[in-house]
Amino acid sequence: MSQLTIPINDTDHFEGKADAPITLVEYGDYQCPHCGAAYPVIKKIQEAFPDQIKFVYRNFPLSESHPMAFACAVATEAAALQGKFWEMHDIIFENQRGLSNEALFRMAEKIRLDIEQFSNDIQKDTLSDKVEADFESGIRSGVNGTPSFFVNGTKFDGGAEDLFGMFREN
């Protein structure tokens, strides 16, 4: 079983209780259709088990297959600088079929980001570095595709529906 080699830290984005008994980490790609299919299932898990799960999302853009994945990841990191990581994360997955640079700006406007700041922030090396650091942490943890999930630090072999079934059984 692969283990999460880089522990959850203050550069990670999470939803749920910080001290929840279960930490669910997803390595995802915003343009990956399998990640898109997992997105509503993760939401369902979060709704069903709100006090038990801390959900962490780490970027794992498969840029060769998904040319917009890296730009989407950087856009979410730019949104995070305005306190809206999860809003950007959600709107990208909800509009996954029409991804483009123009679409990212429309999404940023829709979630009420300061567009001038967003435009400047997406060009910052620190945001690209954060995306690359997430990707590297995934490689070191044995991630070789998306989505990849870790439950309390151990790689989960299965998809989002399997995760939901596991949580229901426990």
Rank of each mutant, 00 (worst) to 15 (best):
I45W: 10
A80F: 13
S65P: 04
F60S: 07
Y39L: 12
L127N: 02
E102Y: 06
K54Q: 08
I6V: 14
Q3L: 15
N120V: 13
L4K: 09
E102W: 03
I22M: 06
L24Q: 14
I91C: 07
I111A: 05
Q52F: 02
V56Y: 06
T76C: 15
T146K: 05
H13V: 00
L99W: 09
F70N: 03
Y30A: 10
T23G: 09
S2K: 14
A37T: 11
L4F: 04
A38Y: 05
D12M: 08
T146Q: 09
A38L: 01
S2T: 10
I22S: 11
F49I: 11
H13D: 03
K43W: 00
Q31K: 11
M68H: 01
K124G: 09
G142P: 10
F149T: 08
T23I: 04
F150K: 00
F55A: 02
A160P: 01
F14D: 07
G158D: 07
L81G: 14
I92Y: 10
F149A: 13
K44F: 05
A80P: 09
K17N: 11
F135D: 02
V74L: 10
G158A: 06
E87T: 08
F105H: 14
E136Y: 01
Q82G: 03
T11N: 15
G142I: 09
L24W: 07
L163A: 11
P33S: 09
L113H: 10
L4H: 05
P50K: 11
S119G: 04
N120M: 12
P147L: 15
R58W: 08
E94G: 13
P67T: 05
A69Y: 08
V41M: 06
A48S: 11
G142E: 05
I122A: 04
G28M: 01
I45R: 00
L24M: 03
F14C: 10
F118C: 03
V41Y: 06
E132N: 14
Y39F: 15
F135Q: 05
K84P: 04
Q117A: 15
L113M: 12
L163H: 10
A80N: 01
P21L: 14
D157Y: 12
G142A: 05
D10V: 06
A133G: 05
C32L: 03
Q3I: 12
E87D: 15
S128T: 01
H13L: 05
K54F: 06
R106V: 13
A79S: 07
D125N: 06
K44C: 02
S63C: 06
D162R: 05
S65R: 05
T23W: 01
Q96K: 09
D51E: 15
A80D: 01
S148P: 07
L113V: 01
I8G: 04
N9D: 12
F93E: 02
N59G: 02
Y27G: 00
P147A: 00
I111D: 12
L81F: 04
G83K: 08
S100Q: 12
G159L: 03
P67H: 01
L127T: 08
F14E: 00
R58V: 12
D10Y: 11
T126L: 15
A80I: 09
I111V: 13
I122K: 03
L113I: 10
H34M: 00
G159E: 00
N170W: 13
A71H: 12
A71L: 12
Q123N: 15
V41T: 04
G153E: 11
N101M: 14
V143N: 03
S141R: 02
P67M: 06
R106M: 07
Y30L: 13
F118V: 02
